[in-house]
Design a protein around this nucleic acid. Structure first.
Lengths: 225, 225
DNA sequence: ACCTGAACACCGTTCAAGT
DNA sequence: ACCTGAACACCGTTCAAGT
């Protein structure tokens, strides 16, 4: 009888990470405590410190776990197409896992999965004709930009959204607030109230991605753009 | 004797915000507790809830206080020059106040000072020839990008930097780590180790700003760029 | 109108002690 | 090698009670 039924398997760092991911999905980053993660794996809080130096390190593991589900887009078409897809996939990834943007943005942990993604991006950028220095900077820019965007996107509009209010309603309310401003001191906010509160984040993101890609394109000789 | 010496002046929301700013500078965002802010103004923690709904609201006030010290650049030269300056000033602002990027990024609180900045930016963008929709999007892009960048910039490199280690040493160590990777699976990371660990954040930022401005420029007819 | 005491339900982390 | 009990020094927030 090789399998012993009544002893739980030894707690691994990986099991810990998976448990933390579940707690995160359930209670969000604010509700993610060492005590809850411990309970999730059926152990007391103090035990976690045998496997992990502190909460920071657990969050580092969590960051890499999030990155693990990233899938590079197919290597077809021009560099522009490929990095367009890269940006969209990265955003999707961050949006799909609760509070992922907040977790990832805080720390620059070069986990193994992130390294793989960087390697892949650099390879494509160099193949597209970017210089070594430009390629290195470009990966940085793309990462910072998408993270910054999603962070804004996910942040509750000043404690209002927390309630059941829909995105649409909030946008409308924001628009009303802009329109209600004194038109002599804020003429542009009043005039552009609709444009400023465009609630379709996909449209907004597409606009921003195109700008960044345009900016990178100027680094290449005209015929390679 | 119009001034009464032994009674402290009534506690205002503004005094509270200033106290919070001091605690923030001293102990960082992690060390910013309601109890410490209360102590800073010479009052008990429970008293704060008379002036402020909760900690979130105090953080909203803090966000606006940070924005209050933003100064729009002179209205000279082309739009590109002006927004180049805008980006650099915004980054400076976030770097100068401890953990400012973390505070600002979490929330989308449209405090009065942020409104003023938006109004000013929109005015310049429209004057430069951007369409209403493009101008609205551009302010969003610039904000998200700079915040994303500084957030990366300020984040400790995975719990290492917390110690006295210098930026230069960390970059060197990171470079060594890249070079130590297996060259057959990570050829690009190995080859670009130096470029990837360029520690001069000013250079990095300048590169990124130029890309974003280039991207926005493509929205204008060629003669207005 | 503004502040306090006291309590509630939590935190992260350490460390001697158990098995 | 791995886990626990118990403690330490904290949290945010509420609420009856004070002035």
């Amino acid at each position: 009888m090789p399998e012993n039924d009544d002893t739980t398997p030894p707690l691994t760092r990986d099991a810990l990470t998976q448990a933390a991911l579940r707690v995160l999905e359930r209670d969000g980053l604010d509700g993610l405590s060492m005590r809850k993660v411990a309970a999730e794996v059926g152990v007391k809080a103090a035990s976690l410190y045998w496997h992990v130096r502190n909460k920071q390190e657990l969050l580092d593991l969590l960051t890499d776990a999030v990155m693990a589900s990233a899938e590079p887009p197919p290597r077809e078409g021009g560099w522009r197409e490929q990095f367009h897809a890269y940006c969209w996939r990265y955003r999707r990834l961050l949006l799909d896992k609760r509070d992922a943007a907040k977790i990832v943005s805080g720390r620059l942990s070069p986990g193994p999965h992130l390294l793989g993604l960087m390697e892949d991006q650099l390879d494509r950028l160099r193949a597209a004709g970017f210089s070594d220095a430009d390629a290195a900077m470009a990966t940085y820019l793309l990462g910072a930009f998408v993270q910054g965007f999603v962070l804004q996107e996910q942040s509750p509009i000043s404690a209002a959204e927390v309630l059941g209010t829909s995105r649409r309603d909030i946008a409308d309310a924001a628009g009303d607030r802009f329109r209600a401003l004194p038109a002599d001191t804020f003429p542009n906010l009043v005039a552009l109230a609709d444009d400023l509160t465009e609630p379709d984040m996909d449209t907004r993101f597409e606009f921003c991605v195109q700008r960044v890609l345009d900016g990178l394109a100027t680094l290449l000789p005209a015929e390679q753009r």
